[in-house]
């Protein structure tokens, strides 16, 4: 425990940053208009200011109460997200099945104790299942491999 609440201080300051950036971008790029005829910038400007205000209140409250540092598992998050992004990058040029295998190879080890054999089995089963459900069953217009149509 810390005398101040670091988790909410971080959260509050992030809100202030995002709110101000959003409001500033709206103010600089979009017309505000008048209250009767609002331009595209008025509503976002208001939202940004409100978010920054809420963030400031949260930060001030957090300065006056004890709390803990946030905890997380960056490795797990990184592997899962990398798998999803790899899937997105692979699906157009390489096809669905390579994309599925890439996703599994990257994300499955996030659990830690998975064997290579299990990963291979997952790749085969899920590729087959996806082909059956999405291509045969639902008729989704998606290529299985880069050479097929």
């Amino acid at each position: 425990m810390h005398r101040r609440d670091p988790r909410d201080i971080i959260g509050g300051l992030l809100l202030v940053t995002v709110g101000l950036a959003f409001a500033a971008y709206a103010y600089a790029n979009y017309r505000l208009g008048t209250v009767a005829r609002m331009g595209p910038g008025m509503f976002p400007l208001g939202l940004g200011v409100i978010l920054a205000t809420l963030g400031a209140v949260l930060t001030v409250q957090a300065l006056r109460r004890p709390g803990n540092w946030p905890t997380g598992e960056p490795l797990v998050a990184g592997l899962v997200l990398a798998g999803i992004i790899a899937f997105g990058m692979a699906i157009r040029p390489l096809g669905l099945i390579p994309a599925i295998c890439l996703l599994i190879v990257l994300a499955a080890p996030a659990e830690g104790r998975i064997r290579p054999r299990t990963i291979a089995a997952l790749c085969v089963c899920l590729s087959l299942l996806s082909w059956l459900i999405f291509s045969v069953g639902l008729g989704l217009p998606v290529r299985m491999f880069w050479w097929s149509l």
Binding site: V80, I84, I85, V142
Partner: peptide
């Protein structure tokens, strides 16, 4: 077991997101 479950769910999430518009952007 969860180590079999979560890759399966991830595969379905990715295909689902892609199938909305056939656009990889939605996956990102």
């Amino acid at each position: 077991p969860y180590h079999l479950l979560f890759p399966t769910v991830l595969v379905f999430v990715c295909i689902g997101a892609y199938s909305v518009n056939n656009n990889p952007f939605d996956i990102y």
